[in-house]
Design a protein around this nucleic acid. Structure first.
Length: 92
DNA sequence: TGTCCGCGGGTGT
DNA sequence: ACACCCGCGGACA
């Protein structure tokens, strides 16, 4: 586990439910604003793609980009999380 | 070996 | 199909 990747995981794990951040944002929080691609590599090489909400990390223009389990799955998960977040917000 | 940077390809409209 | 950004690959310390 590399320190950079670990920090990336921490940042991704800090993303609230139903919220999404861009690779640039994660890269900046990781300590390297220009290493947004390294973030993707770290997520791809992450030991637990299902544990880390890597699907909350999307492109800077809300595009999908890529996903270890499938870009379409990523969109699906994002839709579910957004709906879930909305449900939680509707509920007091 | 790991991290950072650039070209080409993919997704979205 | 085009434009922008990147889940890739290569080079440097």
């Amino acid at each position: 586990m590399t320190p950079f990747a670990k920090k990336v995981y921490q940042v991704v794990l800090s993303i609230p439910l139903g919220q999404v951040r861009s690779y640039k944002w994660v890269a900046q929080k990781a300590g390297s604003p220009g290493a947004f691609q390294a973030v993707g590599q770290a997520l791809k090489r992450n030991p637990y793609p299902l544990i880390i909400p890597c699907h909350r990390v999307i492109r800077n223009d809300e595009k999908i980009g890529g996903y270890a389990l499938g870009a379409k799955q990523k969109k699906f998960l994002l839709k579910l999380e957004k709906d879930l977040a909305k449900c939680l917000l509707s509920k007091e």
